[in-house]
Design a protein around this nucleic acid. Structure first.
Lengths: 149, 149
DNA sequence: GGACATGGTTCGACCGTACAACCAGAAGGT
DNA sequence: ACCTTCTGGTTGTACGGTCGAACCATGTCC
């Protein structure tokens, strides 16, 4: 089978993606692949907040692709750890604005460091000449997934 | 920042991978991304069995990268649905050999079809000239993940 | 002002996973 | 033969993330 034929076969994509998902340990979402005592969703939330500075909760919900109820509880946990603060949104009486506390920023930095460690190892295992291609491919897939819906 | 520098930065890989994971809906492992009423792990198990014909339970555990207790229950569910049969291993008094029933093979076919549907759409959203690259990238990552441990 | 949509919270339930304890069979040494 | 250790499976227990529905408050549109 030629390379182009393979590339047009959904089953091949499925197989490739399936293997990847399992290899990366995306079962057990309650432990981050980086070995940190924090759930995958919490880690994502922390990352988004660290990057954005401030975020409306509804926006976080959208980015995390979770239900609002789930995010509410998630934010509650982060707040309980003293990592995020909730403030009423200035322009919308219903909304909540989220912001990292100082300790939250510290946690985010630690997490980023651990992640860096983890992904450094992964990146090291990818042949140098493949790296750019892999990153590009991930972008392409995210775009495709966004477009699809 | 040049492309090669980006390619060597773990944070970039992290970001790309993170987005992808969320975009693909890898939260809620109890529903397969294909919209079938079956968990991701069950789907994987079904796929492995359909492909191999027969499989030792311990081997399935290895491939799914789960705990043996989890797999034991998983197999129990599949058996309860009438999709797999357990038989004592001929060469090892402890072992269990798994095999799909007729109805299990049918379920696997249906699942594969639904998956095909789903991935066809995804594939359609990926520009044709990117497809081979994406598939290759996934292979590369799985290899890297395997090597790493 | 009334109907409907939107952002958040709380409650209840579901389900997949891990860990530990346990059992039975295999393997290897003395 | 026997004892120890290892390995494949099962069961009990607990944890935790996610969802859906019900509910409230606020915003929006006619």
């Amino acid at each position: 089978m030629s390379r182009d034929q393979r590339a047009d076969d959904p089953a091949v994509l499925q197989e490739a993606l399936g293997s990847f998902v399992r290899a990366f340990g995306l079962h057990q979402p309650e432990t981050t692949p980086c070995g940190q005592p924090i759930s995958v969703s919490e880690a994502h939330a922390l990352g988004e907040l660290a990057q954005e500075g401030e975020l409306r909760q509804v926006e976080l919900t959208r980015r995390l692709r979770l239900q609002k109820s789930t995010v509410s509880r998630l934010v509650g946990q982060l707040s309980h750890r003293g990592w995020v603060e909730r403030a009423p949104a200035p322009d919308d009486g219903r909304g909540v604005v989220l912001r990292l506390t100082a300790s939250g920023r510290r946690a985010a930095r630690n997490l980023a460091e651990a992640r860096r460690e983890r992904f450094s190892r992964l990146l090291d295992s990818i042949p140098a000449h493949e790296r750019a291609g892999v990153l590009h491919a991930l972008d392409v897939m995210v775009e495709a997934l966004d477009e699809e819906r």
